[in-house]
Amino acid sequence: METAIRIKDLNVFAGKTQILHDINVEIPKNKITVILGPSGCGKTTLLKCMNRLTDLYPELKVSGEILINDKNIFDPGADISKLRQSMGLLSQRPYPLPMTIYNNIAYALKLRGVRGRRKQSILVMDYLKQANLYEEVRKRLREPASRLSIGQQQRLCLARGLAVNPDIILADEPTSALDPISSRFIDEKFQEIKPHFTIVVVTHVLRQARRIADNVIFMYMGEVVEQGSASEFFENPKEEKTKSYLEGMFN
C-alpha cells in the first residue's frame, strides 16, 4: 500500500498547552482515511497541519515533519501555495467566496493557472456537474453564492475544492451542518472519487466513520491511540480506549 502523507513526530503547542503529542501516522494513497475522536482531541489541528493552515495562527508552534512525496512541507523553501493547491479543503461549514456562483469556481481555476474564458467556462460546468449542483444552479450562475442553501453551498465548496485539481482532499466534519440528503451525497461522492484522490476526513460521528472509512486514525487528548485498516479497527480493536469509545462509553 502506497503512502500519500507520512507524519513524523508532530508536536503542536498553543502557548504552554500541548495540543498534539508525538503524532506518527501514515495516510495511504487513494483511500479514505478517517480521523476519529471526541471533540477537542486535536483532529482538526492535525488536519490543518497538513496544508499548513496552522500558519494563520501565530500562537501555534509546530514541530516535526509531514512528508508528502518525500518532501517535508515545513521546509523553509516549500511553496505553500502549491502545497495547498494540491489539497482541496472542505470545512465544517461552507464558506463560499464573496462572488457569484460561477466565479467561486472560476477563481479556483484562475489560481490553478487555467487561462481563457471558454476553457474556464467548460471546466466550471464540469465541476458543478461533478458536485451534483449544475442542474440546481444552471439558471443562476451569476447570482451571489451566498444565496444558495447550506447544502448547496457545501457542494459548491466541494466543486471549488476539486477545481484546483488536487491529489488530496481534506475534509473537516464536512457533513455536520448539512441536511441528510446533502450529507449522503458527500459521503457517496467520496467513495466514488477515491480511486483518484487521497481523502482525509475528520469526524466524531462513529456511524459516518463506519460507513466510509478504509483506514482509521483514532485520537484522544491530542494523541493517536490507534491506527489501522477500518475492518481491523472496528472488528478487532487493540487498545482499551478504542474499545470503550466504540462501545459509546465516552463522547
Binding site: 502549491k82 489539497m87 479543503l89
Partner: peptide, 18 residues
C-alpha cells in the same frame, strides 16, 4: 471576517495578497 473564509481562500492556493 471569519478565519474560515481566509482558510478557504488560502487552501485554493491563493497567496496572502491575492
Amino acid at each position: 471576517i471569519p478565519t474560515e473564509l481566509k482558510e478557504a481562500t488560502l487552501s485554493l492556493g491563493a497567496t496572502k495578497w491575492q
